[in-house]
């Protein structure tokens, strides 16, 4: 798991990004090139800019690829080493971040059918558990009034319709 000079993993993040963006860019160029264009008087049509940007993107991805190799070849330059090597994200950390994202996704899906107040209360309870175990009472005492107040702020002060869902309000 430890990173030792990067030899072990040929597929570093930068290289994966560079390679995949080249592939995506090629696909998008192909896609854009075959688009039918409206017959409107134009010096440069709607495809010009996207294709130009994509070509430039491929070059910059190649640049990233090249630099990623160069940095590895000289591990001991005269430069000062970075103050603290970026700590490897542990599995536990990835798990908790995945849980945060999962909570948000579920929130987005629930929002319209279930309604703002209930979903928000659940979201806050869920996320709060991820950050800090326990303290259910405190979280409940905060989250329920918070959801209701925000609902009223949006709907009645800002006149932004939030979904009320299953609550008969």
């Amino acid at each position: 798991m430890k990173e030792t000079g990067g030899k072990k993993s040929l597929f570093t993040f930068d290289r994966i990004v560079a390679l995949s963006s080249i592939l995506i860019a090629l696909f998008l160029i192909h896609n854009e090139y075959n688009m039918p264009n409206p017959n409107i008087q134009q010096t440069i049509g709607p495809s010009f800019m996207p294709i130009a940007i994509l070509v430039a993107l491929i070059f910059s991805a190649l640049l990233i690829l090249v630099t990623s190799f160069r940095i590895i070849r000289k591990p001991e330059g005269g430069e000062a080493a970075p103050a603290e090597p970026p700590a490897k994200t542990t599995a536990g950390q990835y798990k908790i971040m995945a849980m945060v994202i999962l909570g948000l996704l579920v929130y987005a899906i629930m929002l319209v059918p279930v309604g703002f107040i209930i979903s928000t209360t659940i979201l806050i309870l869920w996320q709060a558990q991820l950050f800090q175990r326990g303290k259910w009472i405190r979280n409940l005492v905060v989250s329920i009034p918070f959801s209701i107040i925000v609902y009223y702020l949006f709907v009645h002060v800002l006149e932004v319709m939030l979904p009320m869902g299953i609550l008969p309000l």
Binding site: Q127, A128, L130, N139, F154
Partner: peptide
């Protein structure tokens, strides 16, 4: 408390974007 602050930030972000 951080736990609550960040959940609230998430709520406001979602609402802002949704609306």
């Amino acid at each position: 408390p951080a736990a609550l602050l960040f959940s609230m930030v998430l709520t406001f972000c979602t609402m802002g974007v949704y609306s």
